[in-house]
Structure formats: C-alpha cells, structure tokens
C-alpha cells in the first residue's frame, strides 16, 4: 500500500502541511516495498489549479491513501473518482501521523474544503 502525506520537509521529523495543493513535498510510504519516496509538489508553484496538479502527480504514483489537512473541491473530486482514500490530520510530525493512521485514529475526508481558483495570470 502507498500512503502519501503532504509535508513541509523531506525528513521523517518534518511536519504535515495542512494545505494539499500548495504543500512543499509529498512523502510517500510504500508499505509493501518498505520504501519512502519524496516528491516535490509540482502544484505548489502554479498560479491556478494547484490541487489538480498535485492530485495528478499522486494519481500517477498510484497511491492508495492521502493524509493532509484540507482538500479543495477540485482535488477532492479527482481523488474520490480515482478511489483514493483521504484522511485529515493536524500539523504534527510525520512519524506521529503514520502512527495515528495505523491505529485508525484519523478521520476520513468526505467533503471538500473551500475552493481555491488561481489567478488568471
């Protein structure tokens, strides 16, 4: 299983980034292969459609689970349609995020947060 977490940094002591589309990195934990992949979030620097760009990236990585703070409606629509489960978590260290996930303590995101259209430039 692949678990993607939106994060502010590249390490295991980095904290979860509450924003999905504009987070700095995604840390992807591949539980089967026992590997960690660090992805720079391409959506971060786009004027618009950040959530969509970020989702596209994670869909390409074939992740099964996303853990983040808030999901915008566009990203939510995509992720839900792809069948990826999304969970909400506070801005805490990644280790603790995973622990909470494994203990089944995280709440599933079922409605999206506020939309965020980019500018037109």
């Amino acid at each position: 299983m692949k678990i993607a977490i939106s994060t502010t940094g590249k390490n295991s002591d980095s904290v979860l980034d509450m924003r999905f589309g504009r987070c700095e990195y995604f840390q992807i934990y591949d539980t089967k292969a026992g590997k960690i992949i660090i992805l720079e979030n391409k959506g971060r620097l786009s004027s618009g459609g950040a959530g969509i760009a970020a989702s596209n990236q994670l869909i390409d990585e074939k992740v099964d689970v996303i853990i983040t703070g808030n999901l915008g409606p566009n990203a939510f629509e995509l992720i839900a349609a792809e069948g990826i489960k999304a969970y909400k978590c506070k801005s805490i260290a990644i280790n603790s995020v995973l622990e909470k996930y494994n203990n089944g303590e995280l709440e599933e995101i079922t409605i999206s947060g506020p939309a965020h259209h980019g500018g037109h430039n």
Partner: peptide, 20 residues
C-alpha cells in the same frame, strides 16, 4: 499551463473554471 485537465480512471476530465 493552467492545470485544467486531469486523468481519472483512464478518462481525461476538465475543470472548466480553470480553462482559458
């Protein structure tokens, strides 16, 4: 350039508000 398109389940979908 506007990230208005995405692929879901082998279909391409459009987010029209982002499309120029």
């Amino acid at each position: 350039q506007f990230h208005a398109l995405a692929k879901v389940k082998d279909k391409v979908i459009l987010f029209e508000k982002l499309c120029h």
